[in-house]
């Protein structure tokens, strides 16, 4: 299996990389880990004229905590790096757990969080939990930088609002009042399976009352989908099986699944109901963020 010819570039730093991305003509693709890019070039769905590697941007491989900002994750941190991060395990355990549901070791050692986001696949495992945790992304281009909520960054299957000269540098998960969060994925095998349906939930429970809830559905819409009516149904309610059942049914109604080789739309909608229920239970009962 061979890939088309392209010109390979490895700029030495971020500024050089943005300048190069802005100057190059033709079809230009950024290369992080390459697990999606190489896959697409091999199956013939991507044939760039230029490939711009981020391998020299070492500063994008770090995870740190910044007072007042939250946890800052460099775009080139691998899924394995997320899974093993002590800092993330302490602050937002549900993200390492989500990274742990992905692919297999040989791919989680290659694939990066930035690639998982910019690739824009509705099946991707990290965006739902990141959106549930209110994460934002930082984009750096030739003429400056901008920060926007991840929820506004992915706009369709494989589509984001990134500009040709921009690089996603950081993902920030803000400090928050959330008392519990989780990511639940249903795949057809235990390992190496893409999501048929996934549900991320982040809840704030104070004295037995749900004061805030964010529920994000994966693989059942063109983008990671906020189940807004499910969220609204929970707010202000006491924790109870009935409240969770009601929210789960609302999430199923919010979802817009398609039928494909991994499941019919009907099956997916039922999975949304079951997995929303399980995700909410886990987020409420286990009480880790």
């Amino acid at each position: 299996m061979y890939m088309p010819d392209y010109e390979y570039h490895a700029p030495g730093n971020l500024a050089e990389a943005c300048a190069l991305l802005g100057e190059l003509g033709g079809k230009v693709t950024v290369l992080a880990g390459g697990s999606d890019v190489l896959h697409k070039m091999k199956i013939g769905s991507l044939a760039p004229d230029h490939l711009v590697s981020l391998k020299n941007l070492k500063e994008l491989r770090e995870i740190r905590y910044e007072q007042g900002r939250g946890v800052v994750i460099g775009a080139l941190v691998t899924h394995d790096g997320i899974y093993r991060s002590q800092l993330l395990q302490e602050h937002f355990l549900s993200l390492p757990m989500a990274a742990h549901t992905m692919a297999n070791t040989q791919i989680t050692n290659i694939g990066t969080i930035g690639g998982n986001i910019v690739n824009g696949s509705p099946l991707a495992d990290l965006p739902p939990i990141l959106v549930a945790l209110g994460a934002s992304v930082k984009l750096v281009g030739r003429s400056g930088e901008r920060v926007l909520p991840l929820e506004e960054f992915i706009v369709g299957p494989g589509k984001t609002v990134i500009a040709q000269d921009e690089i996603l540098t950081e993902i920030v998960i803000p400090d928050q009042a959330t008392t519990g969060s989780t990511y639940k994925k249903f795949g057809l095998r235990k390992s190496g399976a893409l999501a048929v349906v996934s549900v991320a939930a982040a809840v704030t429970v104070e004295g037995g009352t749900i004061t805030d809830a964010r529920i994000v559905l994966g693989a059942v819409a063109p983008v990671p989908l906020r189940a807004k009516s499910a969220e609204a149904s929970l707010k202000g309610k006491k924790v109870s099986d009935a409240a969770i059942e009601e929210a789960a049914a609302a999430a199923a109604a919010d979802s817009r699944p398609i039928s494909d080789l991994r499941g019919s739309d009907e099956y997916r909608r039922e999975l949304v109901r079951v997995f929303t229920k399980r995700a909410l239970r886990k987020a409420i009962d286990e009480g880790h963020v």
Binding site: Y8, G33, G34, S53, T105, I107, N109, I110
Partner: peptide, 19 residues
């Protein structure tokens, strides 16, 4: 196609030699 890359297993079919 697994190889160890800085001690970690990766699929070498998904890595460019130049990288």
């Amino acid at each position: 196609c697994t190889v160890l890359f800085d001690g970690r297993p990766i699929n070498s079919c998904m890595k460019l030699a130049v990288e």
